[in-house]
Design a binder for these strands. Structure first.
Length: 549
RNA sequence: GGCCCGUUGGUGAAGUGGCUUAACACAUAGCCCUCUCAAGGCUACAUUCAAGGGUCCGAAUCCCUUACGGGUCACCA
């Protein structure tokens, strides 16, 4: 009996060969230097920051090089699969504008290199494994979990490196006849790759981020096919898929670096060229004094739904991640304010070498800048869309009168130096509620008076203002009148005069405008008062002022 | 424990043997401007690059040792 007989016994129905698949998925017709990248999550939970981080890199390197970005669903672990995870991944990518060129979703395959769902590629993997068995580079292993645990314990006791390697790789020494006998007897087995590496040898590995690395050769006979489902493990699926799909650059987390030697070895066993690798740093978080990987369970900001719920513009999240990905991104962006982030030429070797701390302050800053540059129409659309999903109360406010809402958010907007007070759409309601009479009337109002708190004085100021100095003809006139009133009532209209001789005055123009502001809005901090008064109009102002008693 | 990677201000970081008296941005503080707030302008914020030793005329940059942090050693990805 030969290896071929063994291969046929295990995969009797596999007739296609590796060569057949090579022909079926020919080299992509792309221009020189075009990068083919992929985002390949496993549908085990929720989309988190680290995932988006990688997807952005994939997207940017593909787009900026005129290449292809595709999505592959790595669902080989059926036990950990979670319902709806695939939908969430697709939704999140779409939400952030990172739409893959090739993908498989909802029964539809887009692209010529599919299927893009690993569980649908079983036959392909089997053909490749069959080939490996035929050439003696893979073999069935009948060791069960207990035996392997026992082996590991012994290894630890003997202080030797744990793992299925060298003399510990028992099943690798089984003859073909013995193996076939066991299979015919119905014994359970996995398929292992037969390593030809020597752990004491180093080889040069070129990681695009870290540069040349010297890693130990792999000598572990890694499991490449699981027993129950006959699905491949990640290691094997990665080799077959990224070869057949002609991925040029694999972007993956740093945690994969230690298994890179296995992957290289498998590519070599098939005679394939390995893709280029970019192992990305983990996003970490400060926990007490030490740093740790950001975690979905402990850190709400690890989940993409956090940003969605608070209403950060998607671009803000992307750009904040871009600054971590390549710190020269910000510089590039200020020089090229009109270019889209995916035109940025990413340099893997400029990526940070250690774990990056995600800074929510920085996110706020980027976000404020982005929102401040939006036109009123754009802000209206984005904030309304957000409100429809996440805030019934903001939605109802906007629905009252869209034009009025737009005018409010347009105060000090669409100008050279726009206001930067909104970091998230969820901030808006708290900034504008007092502009709505019914909302104002339904609340318990706490007037934030400052220096002038005497009710009689306040009433006197308000009455004088409405009777003699109310003027909305222009910003300048408006303020001139306020100053004139100061003179009449004994307050300093000029701050310099006031500072020189504060005792000569009852107060100053700031005190007066604060009374006008607080009586109208209840708040001592608001955008430009003139603009607010313009939106109110005389009657509504009078109405608010009459509430003061 | 073995193997691999890393360590520059509160944060992201620039830096690749002399242009560094260590960019830039965020944060923080102060001042200016100003009808409040936000914004904007200006200023401050690492005598030092984890520590020690070495190489060199010259080191954050090259070498060694130590310390600390991270990753990984599954029929999980």
């Amino acid at each position: 009996m030969t290896n071929k007989d063994l291969a046929n016994l295990i995969f009797p129905n596999i007739t296609k060969t590796v060569e057949d698949y090579e022909k079926e998925y020919p080299k992509r017709d792309l221009k020189e230097g075009a990068i083919v990248s992929r985002f390949a999550p496993s549908p085990t939970g929720f989309m988190h920051l680290g995932g988006l981080f990688q997807a952005i890199i994939d997207y940017v390197i593909a787009k900026s090089s005129g290449g292809v970005f595709f999505l592959r669903n790595e669902d080989t672990d059926k036990a950990r699969e979670v319902d709806g995870a695939v939908e969430l991944i697709m939704e999140t990518l779409t939400h952030y504008g990172l739409i893959p060129d090739e993908y498989e979703f909802d029964g539809k395959i887009v692209g010529n290199y599919g299927p893009y769902i690993q569980s649908e590629r079983k036959e392909i993997y089997h053909a490749f494994i069959k080939h490996l068995i035929e050439i003696g580079r893979a073999y069935p292993c009948f060791c069960d979990k207990e035996e392997l645990d026992q082996m590991r314990e012994n290894q630890e006791a003997m202080k030797v490196r744990p793992g299925y390697h060298g003399r510990f790789a028992r099943c690798s020494r089984l003859s073909v006849d013995e193996a076939m006998e066991k299979i015919k007897n119905g014994e359970k087995y996995v398929i292992r790759f037969r390593s030809n590496g020597n752990f004491d040898n180093k080889f040069e590995f070129d990681d695009l981020r870290q540069g040349k690395l010297y890693l130990n050769e792999n000598d572990i006979d890694e499991v490449i096919m699981k027993s129950d489902t006959m699905l491949p493990t990640y290691h094997f699926a990665h080799v077959v898929d990224d070869h057949l799909m002609h991925t040029t650059h694999v972007v993956r987390g740093e945690e994969w670096l230690p298994s890179a030697p296995k992957h290289i070895q498998m590519f070599e066993a098939f005679g394939f060229e390995a893709p280029k690798y970019i192992h990305t740093p983990l996003i970490v978080k400060k926990d007490g004094d030490s740093l740790r990987k950001i975690s979905k369970r402990k850190d709400p900001e690890a989940s993409m739904s956090y940003y969605d719920l608070l209403g950060y513009p998607t671009l803000a999240v992307i750009e904040s991640l871009m600054t971590i990905i390549n710190s020269n991104y910000e510089e590039w962006h200020t020089i090229n304010p009109d270019k889209k982030f995916d035109e940025f030429i990413f340099s893997a070797n400029k990526m940070s070498t250690s774990g990056a701390l995600y800074d929510l302050m920085k996110l706020d800053d980027i976000s404020k800048n982005i929102i401040s540059k939006m036109s009123k129409d754009e802000l209206y659309e984005k904030s309304y869309e957000w409100a429809c999903k996440h805030s019934e109360s903001l939605k109802s406010i906007i629905d009252k009168d869209v034009e009025y809402y737009k005018n409010i958010i347009n105060i000090e907007r669409e100008s050279e130096k726009p206001r930067k007070d909104i970091a998230r759409y969820s901030d808006i309601e708290n900034l504008i509620w007092y502009m709505y009479d019914d909302v104002f009337d339904s609340k318990e109002i706490n007037y934030e008076w400052k220096n002038i708190t005497d009710k009689e004085e306040i009433k006197k100021i308000l009455n004088t203002y409405m009777n003699k100095y109310f003027d909305l003809s222009s910003q300048e006139e408006w303020f001139n009148k306020v100053k004139l009133m100061c003179d009449e009532l004994g307050y300093a209209s000029n701050m310099k005069d006031y500072k020189k001789n504060p005792d000569n005055f009852k107060g100053n123009v700031i005190d007066i405008s604060t009374v006008l502001r607080v009586a109208l809005t209840s708040k001592c901090m608001t955008p430009d008062l003139y603009s607010i008064m313009k939106l109110f109009g005389r009657d509504r102002i009078l109405n608010r002022y009459n509430k003061i008693s």
